[in-house]
């Protein structure tokens, strides 16, 4: 780094010592800051374990796991959804958040309805509020099957 112009003609031993120390300090500083930049970038480049952002759709369950006339709660973003197989075998998915006071609804096998335990709100299998306090139907999601026949994933996405 030193160029001929910067050579100090009047340098004594002490000055040389100090200059050497300063250069070493500078080199240490440069190397450590460069490490501090490279390390986060390197970690950033490593693909994260969760794979990819897929909040618009989610695999709710295996199609084979869900028997007719039953339902299962799944996580959709930070909110619960409910996947339902009707007694006729059709798959449907709704937001599991009751439109009354945000409790989580559940499948009620004996009447084939969606039921909110908090205040006895009842929805039919079309998600429509049919009894109790809920003011609106449940939000409806789109259901698709993906994968090999007999072993399909149920993919739920926002309409």
């Amino acid at each position: 780094m030193p160029s001929p112009r910067t050579v100090d003609m009047a340098s004594t031993d002490g000055r040389l010592e100090r200059r050497k120390f300063l250069d070493m300090l500078l080199a240490t500083g440069f190397v450590s800051t460069i490490l501090a930049f490279v390390y986060p970038v390197w970690r950033y480049l490593i693909p994260p374990a969760t794979g990819e952002p897929t909040i618009a759709s989610v695999v709710a369950a295996k199609a084979s796991e869900l028997k007719p006339n039953s339902g299962v709660i799944f996580k959709f973003g930070g909110k619960p959804g409910i996947l339902v197989r009707t007694p006729e075998g059709e798959l449907r998915a709704f937001s599991a958040i009751c439109t009354h006071l945000d409790c989580t609804v559940q499948y009620k096998g004996d009447t084939s309805q969606l039921w909110c335990a908090c205040h006895n709100g009842i929805y039919d299998l079309g998600g429509n509020n049919v009894a109790g306090p809920p003011p609106r139907p449940l939000e409806k999601f789109v259901v698709n099957l993906r994968g090999e026949p007999g072993n399909e994933d149920v993919v739920v996405s926002r309409a």
């Binding site: 986060p40 970038v41 970690r43 950033y44 490593i46 994260p48 969760t50 990819e52 952002p53 897929t54 909040i55 618009a56």
Partner: peptide, 17 residues
Amino acid sequence: YESVQFIVSEVEFGWLI
């Protein structure tokens, strides 16, 4: 939106970048 959320919360040091 989801991918930016993914960057800041899932990718290591994504928040920093």
